[in-house]
Design a protein around this nucleic acid. Structure first.
Lengths: 207, 207
DNA sequence: GTTAGAATGGACCGGCCAGTCCAGTCCTCC
DNA sequence: GGAGGACTGGACTGGCCGGTCCATTCTAAC
């Protein structure tokens, strides 16, 4: 679904555009949105000012939006193998490990939150990207909980949407605290506690 | 503990300084850190450039740090009446309501996260403010859980620190999702789920 | 009432950086 | 092979904004 806006791009152009987005994402992750200039992106990607504006005629903001989209896709892609089949407690724990690992590796640079906080609310485009990301994420968590129910590991009476929303909030909170404190302690606690409570809700059916 | 750095301030000076911090906090809450200039602060607070630098010789960053401290105090102060005695389930629910109410009123402008994300990691001072805020918050939550245990509403075997950390993460996550989506749904879900699970851990002792 | 120093006003500066422009090169399609 | 358009290079500009400076007024203490 890259769509029509890239219609007039040559293969070469496409490559350059991608190079710009990926390079910009790197720089942004390293030094943060606030202090990153187009010149930083330019020198990192080996491009000229005119190229930046050739591929992003609407300027810096449009480039940042493109980077936000790129990063949002990566968030889901990274977890997809685990998120896709959360149908056993083992799978949930593997997902937990993957999340912790990813964010620990990422350290205190969360590209999404930084990008969002920066262009955030005023720009509807960015908000849409974040909302969509969260929606997909929560949907997958909900599907996982339903899978547990289907497998008899959780009672059907459980409020799936609430549980999925809470779990998503726990992850987000853990990450955001990690960004502030530099420690993944809360992220781990939130995930462990969340899964633990879910298992407790499953009662004696726990394997 | 306002301390020695304000030693040479006249009463008038003290008032001006406070006016600057509070006015700056307002502006920042309204339009965000990224786009706020010293001139905005100046005109809002009815001060001159030289006043700003008279009271904050280290410039804009120092002013932002002062605002961060101010806002951090407000966060705790707002919840203190509820946070201080979380010794019954009713108290927990009242706290929940207070948190939801506060953040809903605040809308999508979280001064703390915005400030932190902006000057954040590089500046050790800001990080210290956030870390301290989170520490106090979690400490109070932990005290509340222990109070529940003391009142026989929760089993002593419960891992207090983990539960408190998870609860804090849930709140933070709910808020940060609210900042992104504009909806308090996740904040509510996270709090409700968290308290619900806590009560469930209390077993039949639930009133 | 005088004086030291705090408080204030506001003009000014200088760097930074997003965005412009034009000149030149490289595709690609006919 | 040539023409149109995509692609690239890089000099240039214009505004914005943090920070400086000095002149003036106010405050408080003796």
């Amino acid at each position: 679904m890259p769509g029509p806006q890239t219609a007039r791009l040559t293969a070469k152009g496409e490559a350059t555009r991608r190079r710009i987005v990926e390079g910009a994402a790197e720089v942004l992750r390293e030094q943060g949105v606030a202090v990153t200039t187009l010149d930083d992106v330019r020198s990192r990607t080996g491009t000229s000012k005119s190229q930046l504006f050739h591929y992003f005629p609407d300027g810096k903001e449009a480039l940042l939006l493109a980077v936000a989209r790129y990063e949002a896709d990566r968030v889901i892609d990274d977890q997809m193998p685990h998120l896709a089949r959360l149908d056993s407690w083992e799978a949930w724990h593997r997902w937990r490990d993957a999340v912790v690992e990813r964010y620990e590796a990422q350290g205190d640079h969360c590209p999404m939150s930084a990008l969002f906080l920066h262009i955030g609310r005023q720009h509807p485009g960015t908000r849409a990207v974040v909302v969509e990301l969260l929606r997909r994420w929560q949907e997958d968590l909900g599907a996982g909980i339903r899978a547990l129910q289907a497998n008899g590991l959780l009672p059907p009476s459980l409020d799936v949407d609430q549980a999925a929303a809470a779990m998503l909030a726990a992850v987000q909170g853990g990450v955001s605290i990690m960004l502030s404190t530099g420690s993944s302690l809360h992220l781990r606690a939130a995930l462990d506690w969340g899964i633990l409570q879910l298992r407790a809700a499953g009662g004696a059916a726990v394997a």
